[in-house]
Amino acid sequence: MKLKIDGHLFFTDSEEYHKNLDSFLTLKDQEADHDESILKISEHEYLIHLNNDIFHVDLESLNSNDGKIFAPLKGIVQSVVVKENDEVKAGQKLIQILSMKLQNDILAEFSGRVVRVLTKPGRVIEKGQLLMEIEKYD
């Protein structure tokens, strides 16, 4: 089982995780903080309020390793750093989006070759819009 929490990947099959889960599951009622809540915001996304903090959990993006890069938020494309046929490494910047006055980088989650670029600087993009396709290297 994998979880992506605020963009950070966690594996729940580690020993450490189970140790923590065990201690957590056996918490006595009075130790529980009653200000927690969970909200499902899409088929695969949750917002969890815990320790007066909010965690965004995405289960799907882990499985969608088909090389499609979608816009994570609405904004304006500032620059497209790679072009078709470029080789990209995991973690490399692909596209820069301007949203709420802030620059946001879209990074490659895996290494591969850029097959298609479907946007260009200046374009207004909607959340979830397909921006790029990458052929994944195994």
Partner: peptide
């Protein structure tokens, strides 16, 4: 994102 918090989050889901 301590292991304890991650466990809590997983359990919540």
């Amino acid at each position: 994102l301590s292991p304890k918090t991650v466990a809590s989050i997983a359990a919540a889901i």
